[in-house]
């Protein structure tokens, strides 16, 4: 089994729920557990929110691109923005590190992504943008007949 989807949308906060719901609908074909679905929705929400708040600093002219690939029981997700980028990725992924404490961010987004997924990778170029790649193998979706 293999499948693929790609969606691009404006960096508006009202699209955060659109993004996570869309990915959840797409991966439903893998028959994920409720917990797996919640994990995927949460990490999509984290990465898209980061693109909007940090990548574009809430400039709604930016766009966010999500690609999702399914292969057998594996999901691969990339969330990309073309915004500010990250100067120091090692610092950014530290739990509790945030560059925007005044916006009530708590620096947990990357920690959540790392915890909820099997694989997590950031590629970022200052002033060009950031791509987050997330992978996970679904465990509980073995249909009895295949």
């Amino acid at each position: 089994m293999s499948n693929f989807m790609k969606v691009e949308f404006a960096a508006k906060s009202e699209n955060e729920s659109f993004a996570r719901t869309t990915v959840a609908a797409f991966i439903a074909q893998l028959d994920p557990t409720v917990e797996e679905l919640t994990e995927i929705k949460t990490v999509v929400s984290e990465a898209v929110t980061n693109a909007i708040i940090h990548g574009y600093e809430e400039n709604e002219k930016g766009t966010v691109l999500i690609e999702c690939e399914l292969k057998d029981d594996n999901i691969s997700l990339t969330i990309r923005d073309f915004g500010n980028g990250i100067e120091d990725v090692d610092e950014a992924i530290q739990p509790m590190y945030t560059s925007k404490p005044e916006l009530e961010r708590s620096g947990m987004g990357f920690t959540i992504m790392e915890n909820f997924m099997d694989h997590f990778e950031i590629e970022s170029i200052p002033n060009h943008g950031t791509t987050v790649t997330l992978r996970k193998k679904f465990l509980n979706n073995q249909s009895a007949y295949n």
Binding site: E46, S106, G109
Partner: peptide, 13 residues
């Protein structure tokens, strides 16, 4: 039914 780190920030604040 759903929350992400934005909720953590609101509660901590």
């Amino acid at each position: 039914y759903f929350m992400d780190s934005s909720g953590l920030g609101v509660f901590l604040g």
